[in-house]
Design a protein around this nucleic acid. Structure first.
Lengths: 243, 243
DNA sequence: CGGCGATCCTGCCGTGGATCAGTTCATACT
DNA sequence: AGTATGAACTGATCCACGGCAGGATCGCCG
């Protein structure tokens, strides 16, 4: 029954048990539907008066540009994720958001959002939880870049994507459809695309996982998780905390 | 007048204008005072049924341990910051928290916290903001490790600490008191302590900043900010969003 | 059909930072 | 004063990863 609702409702439902009226409020946030084309950024660093979006369909990445032209992809967002939530709370965007596939998203106004928090504290709690989960992922990403070598980092990245996609029903333990290129991986992992390529070859030759355009296949989940020190505690949730 | 309240109230006051009753609720969260000794971790990775704390006095760091014994410090917390908020929302801690100085903190029960969210949506919004700000810092940290070299990374780190401490009145643009050792810097920056030492020497010799135990002195803020591509937009706030 | 732009793949060499193996310095303890 | 301890500092060596350059493959479009 949750599946008849938006991916966002599905995600939040993992944390707080949502009432019919909560779900109705979530639905009202989905009124202004927008489409975005691949590569046309929908949020720019430094932009003010930015709307928030709830991603309904497609993949995007959020990244920061450096002076020297290189970029660091901070995270990929998939359906059910908020886009630019921080930008509203700070009133100026500190990152860019780029669609990697054609994207469908619902625009939410700042006033609507703040009103929702005030009217529906349960949802505010759920959103706080979602924000914490996002932070946990960024932290894991940080640890990866700081203390894992290229192989471990890549392995961890693939496992995390797999876990997230599985949660919203778009992947399994064996693999998932994935629109990313090796360049995206490089920008996300803090590696050069050349090196990413080598690492992917190694993972493939070792029978751990295959990354090809459009499809990621995980051949040996356990060994991959072992290599990556992957701990899914920070993604799993054994049922709603708030009933 | 805000200064008569807790550092947390002071911090949140930057985002939402807090009423007397909001402040009173915040005060009730500070009832259970606890003290912690240096080096005795107050949260452990994997621990469940964890309380949250509001840091009142002292510094702590949150970190993750790797299999090989190395660690990645994810963030340092200073008075006014929450400790272990994620651990409650996830019901199991995904990191450790270690006091770097003697610490005073208020213990907050999970039930109290959730009740506060429900009763005082304004505070929930403020906390969401604080969580977003924390995430922004982790993101900046991530970008630093991924795309900045050791010098830039170190410079950025010092500037960020300076900005945060200035916000709570414990530092100026010229420097701040700082209990960290070079080992802490190494664990935070993803460098070896040896290399940190070399980088600090360079910064000192270039007349940019001096890091000594107990005191950080910034000699040339502008050149340092230039070197680090430091953008304080993500920390600044031009006044409360919610009035 | 042939040309063009992405993407993927590979080899070779340069380098930033890790690691090892120390020395110096400061404070604290006896 | 003499010893212990922990932080700061230094030089020599090594290696993971980046940069560059060239090539293979595929899909798209005229």
């Amino acid at each position: 029954m949750l599946s008849t609702h938006s991916p966002l409702a599905r995600k939040l439902g993992n944390f707080v048990a949502l009432s019919e009226s909560d779900l109705a409020v979530l639905d009202t946030l989905h009124r202004r539907r927008r489409s975005f084309a691949v590569g046309r950024d929908l949020v720019f660093q430094g932009q003010t008066h930015q709307a928030v979006y709830i991603l309904a369909e497609g993949w995007v990445c959020s990244y920061k540009l450096m002076r020297d032209g290189s970029r660091q992809i901070v995270d990929f967002q998939i359906p059910g994720d908020f886009l630019g939530l921080r930008s509203v709370l700070f009133r100026t965007a500190d990152h860019n958001i780029e669609p990697l596939t054609p994207v469908e998203a619902s625009e939410v106004l700042e006033s609507e959002l703040l009103q929702t928090f005030a009217d529906t504290p349960r949802l505010a709690t759920a959103l706080l939880w979602a924000a914490s989960r996002d932070e946990a992922m960024v932290v894991e990403h940080l640890v990866g870049i700081g203390r894992r070598d290229a192989r471990e980092r890549t392995a961890h990245f693939l496992l995390e994507l797999s876990a997230r996609l599985t949660l919203v029903g778009r992947g399994t333990r064996d693999g998932f459809a994935c629109p990313l290129t090796q360049y995206h991986l490089a920008d996300a992992l803090g590696l050069s695309s050349v090196h990413v390529n080598r690492v992917l070859r190694e993972l493939r030759e070792d029978g751990l996982a295959t990354f090809q355009t459009g499809q990621v296949t995980i051949h040996d989940f356990d060994r991959l998780a072992e290599l990556a020190e992957f701990d899914r505690a920070y993604l799993d949730q054994e049922g709603p905390l708030l009933r």
